[in-house]
Design a protein around this nucleic acid. Structure first.
Length: 270
DNA sequence: GGTCGCCTGGTA
DNA sequence: TACCAGGCGACC
């Protein structure tokens, strides 16, 4: 379930399980994962202590005390499932991280598209990510200048992690609906007022996805209590909650875009 | 910029 | 059986 709010919650659970612990083993169960890390380097993880877990955009960074770094990206379906050593391995587990306290964290990923990378001290390349999409101090001017240079529609631009980190297909559609912006309008055609509205909408959508969605108590293994309410995504043919017009679906850059043809009125700049 | 492929599953 | 999938990197 990977967009910023879901990855943030996953990283939080990972942090609770990992910080201060030492690695007993990292097992890569899927060949696509094994192909990316030499078995020697994998084995050399034994005994390494975890310093901290960090999220940047949709990436999760596991910093080891010796400077090595594990980077995990869930892609489409990844999630963590924590358990105890010796328990049956979950269906769809693609990697297992065993810790010195008997905890076991499984990367579950039915489509096996998630990635795990291991870097030595000082080897991890910088992530090509823009500012976090929900960062309240985000500079609208900088974003406006970046968008002004772009060709193409705003919706695919929102998915470019170099522009804003953490926005995915669902919340891009939701934010555009909320800001009443036509997903096909050229990114360079948005005026400042629209950009401000778009950023506000992104923050609202992300906040709604994060807040109240998880039980505040039961920190050990909080799971989504319910799916966040969506206004347009996956609602093709259903009525717009604002104006009643049937929600439309189109394809942009190979991804589904859901929008209201009435309140996200076709812009003259299209 | 757009399209394809990665993998494997859930669903109509 | 076909289509679709919340991501992204390689390719044109």
């Amino acid at each position: 379930m990977p967009e910023l709010p879901e990855v943030e919650e996953a990283a939080r659970r990972l942090r609770r399980a990992l910080e201060g612990r030492a690695i007993v083993a990292l097992q890569l169960l899927h060949p696509a994962l094994r192909a990316r890390i030499a078995s020697r380097r994998l084995a050399a993880l034994r005994g390494a202590r975890i310093a901290r877990v960090e999220r940047r955009g949709k990436h999760q960074l596991i910093h080891l005390e010796d400077g090595r770094e594990l980077r995990v990206h869930f892609r489409m379906n990844g999630d963590w499932e924590t358990g105890r050593a010796g328990e049956p391995v979950p269906r769809f587990a693609r990697a297992i991280l065993a810790l010195d306290d008997g905890t076991r964290v499984a990367l579950i990923d039915s489509r096996a598209l998630a990635t795990v990378e291991l870097f030595g001290r000082g080897e991890a390349p910088p992530l090509a990510l823009g500012p976090e999409a929900d960062d309240p101090s985000l500079d609208v001017g900088a974003l406006a200048r970046a968008l002004a240079r772009r060709r193409g529609a705003i919706k695919p631009a929102l998915l470019d992690q170099r522009l804003l980190a953490g926005v995915g297909n669902i919340y891009a559609a939701e934010a555009l609906w909320r800001a009443r912006i036509d997903p096909f309008v050229p990114a360079s055609a948005l005026d400042r007022r629209q950009l401000v509205a778009l950023l506000r909408a992104l923050r609202a959508v992300i906040a709604r996805a994060s807040g109240g969605r998880y039980r505040a108590s039961d920190a050990a293994d909080a799971r989504p209590a319910r799916a966040p309410r969506l206004d347009v995504y996956d609602r093709e043919g259903e009525r717009c909650r604002r104006c009643g017009t049937p929600i439309a679906r189109a394809v942009q850059a190979g991804r589904s875009t859901y929008y209201c043809p009435t309140c996200q009125a076709r812009s003259a700049a299209r």
